[in-house]
Simulated assay, not measured.
Amino acid sequence: MARSSRSYDWGFPRWRPYGDKREAATVKLCDRHGCEAPGDRPAPKSPNSPERWYFCERHAAEYNRNWNYFEGLNEEEAKQREANERREAAGYADSAHYGWAGPGDGTRSRDEMRALEVLELESDANFESVRASWRRLAKANHPDKRPDDAEAAKRFHAIQAAYDVLKSAEERRQWKPD
């Protein structure tokens, strides 16, 4: 006789017998007294301890807000631990020179980043804000507006040079060869 491959699981109501390949999943409840939400976010019971509390999202946020990393240490021990951890993490700071070299997303050159600094803009500024900042700073430092101020003249030339750098970079980005 041929073997039947027919399934008796047609959705709801449940036609297959209970206990057949599908057991109830155990859900750990939040360790906060009185909370019935699932406790799926582990938190250490004390520093450097393998024991964990399991909280829901709301109570984990509350726990993290009130966490004191230096609990149980006197002031001298806390300073010593902080110094040790900063020393151990210094290797990460020392390796920063392997990065691409500064703020931004890497789409701008070093000259463009310096030009944005001169125009007092963030690294992700668009060209409209570059133009607005250039106009504002150029008007404030123009030699006709401040005829006897040598520092204002230097700033005006720096602002003009920064705008030229950013304008030519924007033109290069706009022009795409076919």
Rank of each mutant, 00 (worst) to 15 (best):
M1S: 14
M1P: 12
R3H: 14
S4A: 14
S4H: 09
S5W: 13
R6P: 10
S7I: 03
D9A: 15
W10H: 15
W10M: 10
G11H: 04
G11F: 04
F12S: 14
R14M: 15
R14S: 09
R16A: 08
Y18I: 09
G19L: 05
D20K: 14
D20N: 14
A24G: 11
A24C: 05
T26F: 05
T26Y: 10
T26D: 07
V27C: 04
K28T: 08
L29C: 01
C30M: 10
C30T: 05
G34N: 00
E36I: 12
E36L: 09
E36W: 10
A37S: 08
P38G: 02
P38W: 01
G39R: 00
R41F: 05
R41E: 03
P42D: 06
P44T: 07
K45V: 07
N48A: 11
S49W: 02
P50Y: 02
P50V: 03
E51H: 05
R52V: 07
W53E: 08
Y54H: 15
A61K: 14
A61L: 11
A61M: 12
Y63L: 11
Y63P: 06
Y63T: 06
R65Q: 11
N66G: 06
N66F: 08
N66K: 07
N68C: 13
N68M: 15
F70K: 02
E71P: 06
E71G: 10
E71Y: 13
G72Y: 10
G72L: 10
L73Y: 08
N74I: 14
E76R: 15
A78F: 14
K79Q: 15
K79H: 15
R81V: 07
E82V: 13
E82I: 15
N84A: 11
N84T: 12
E85Q: 09
E85M: 05
R87H: 13
R87G: 11
E88D: 13
S95E: 05
A96W: 11
A96T: 14
A96C: 11
G99E: 01
W100Y: 15
A101S: 12
A101W: 08
G102I: 05
G106L: 04
G106V: 01
T107R: 00
S109I: 00
S109A: 01
R110Y: 06
R110W: 06
R110Q: 09
D111V: 04
E112D: 00
M113R: 09
R114A: 09
R114H: 08
A115T: 02
V118H: 03
E120L: 05
E120C: 03
E122K: 15
D124H: 11
A125H: 04
A125Y: 03
N126F: 13
S129T: 12
R131L: 14
W134V: 06
R135M: 10
L137C: 01
A138F: 09
K139Y: 10
N141Q: 14
H142E: 06
D144M: 12
K145D: 08
R146N: 14
R146L: 14
D148S: 15
D149R: 06
E151C: 00
E151L: 07
K154H: 05
R155D: 11
R155V: 11
R155C: 08
F156G: 00
F156M: 04
A158I: 06
A158L: 08
Q160G: 04
Q160T: 05
A161N: 02
A162K: 01
V165D: 02
L166F: 00
S168M: 12
E170D: 13
E171M: 09
R172H: 01
R172D: 02
R173C: 01
Q174F: 03
K176W: 04
K176L: 10
P177L: 02
D178Q: 07
D178Y: 05
